[in-house]
């Protein structure tokens, strides 16, 4: 079915043996300008505050891997996912998707990736079919082929047929998030970027979305980057986990490796304890971005 997607046909060559994702020394800071008016800044009265969202972040992800990015709110997870999604240009360092630079070769990278974010961003008055049709056409899937594929995916997600043509705003958040994952399925991405896809979902919806992620890996042979602040989710879904705190990677290993690093006397420990030991913080603490200048 994926062969019907023209974007897939326009996909660049992927050399065998090349890492799916390479992030090298990526740093990003942002200006917080809400306190300083342009007049104050022009007169030099108040320099804008800057925060460091990412600090010298480096890692490599192998093809087919589920790679977790674990960190509290404000730790830089979403910024990192946005860099890989071509939506934020890093200040320094570089990020590659199957060897293609996300800044210099962004159009090629866009043909390889898709992203699901924490908020299911749709035209709320439009139905799932209308929203997915829009997404399908943007990725080169048209007409009957697109419609058949959309119906097939929505059926597989367990969406009742009467809801196919109802406005998205009438659906539960869990169901909206499933449609968001369907949108990503539709384009058959080689690298899927999942930015807290289960945050705010009820336990049942969370389990269903997690099952979909596993299914995506098994059936689509996709490489998945999953950002989350759910320890259990990271532990059960991910092959390796990078713990991100204040924009820095403080540890990177398999879930077992991270536990072994912290465990003493052969005691079994939880990922919460691992996180506390490595960052000195509880996961539910809101991470403070690092202020680097300003007054």
């Amino acid at each position: 079915m994926a062969q019907n997607v023209i974007a897939t046909q326009l996909r660049p060559h992927i050399a065998p043996g090349i890492p799916a994702v390479v992030v090298e020394h990526v740093s990003k800071s942002f200006e917080l300008d809400e306190r300083a008016s342009w007049w104050e800044r022009l007169r030099g009265r108040r320099r804008p505050r800057r925060i460091r969202a990412l600090q010298d972040v480096s890692f490599t992800v192998a093809p087919g891997e589920i790679f977790g990015i674990l960190g509290p709110n404000g730790s830089g997870k979403s910024t990192l996912i946005r860099v890989l999604s071509t939506l934020i240009i890093p200040d320094s360092g570089r990020a590659l998707v199957f060897g293609y630079d996300v800044v210099q070769q962004d159009m090629i990278v866009k043909r390889l990736i898709n992203r699901v974010s924490v908020e299911a961003a749709f035209f709320k008055k439009l139905s799932p079919v209308e929203n997915l049709m829009y997404g399908a056409r943007l990725y080169g899937l048209h007409g009957t082929a697109a419609r058949e594929r959309i119906y097939s995916i929505l059926h597989r997600l367990g969406l009742r047929e009467s809801a196919f043509h109802q406005p998205m705003e009438e659906m539960s958040r869990g169901m909206q998030q499933k449609v968001a994952i369907a949108r990503a399925f539709l384009t058959s991405p080689v690298v899927l970027l999942l930015d807290e896809p289960t945050t705010g979902l009820d336990p049942r919806s969370k389990r269903e979305v997690q099952a979909l992620i596993r299914e995506l890996r098994e059936t689509h042979d996709a490489t998945i980057l999953l950002s989350t602040h759910d320890m259990q989710e990271a532990e059960t879904l991910c092959d390796r986990i990078a713990i991100l705190d204040e924009g820095r990677i403080v540890a990177l290993d398999t879930p077992e490796g991270l536990k072994a690093r912290v465990a003493a006397n052969g005691r079994k420990i939880s990922m919460e304890e691992v996180f506390l030991a490595l960052t000195g913080k509880q996961m539910d603490e809101v991470g403070d971005a690092v202020m680097v200048e300003g007054n």
Binding site: S85, M107, A121, F122, F123, L138
Partner: peptide, 14 residues
């Protein structure tokens, strides 16, 4: 307003 801006700008189109 709809929150779809990032998805549209992320699509592989000129």
């Amino acid at each position: 307003w709809e929150g779809t801006i990032e998805y549209t700008l992320m699509a592989p189109i000129h």
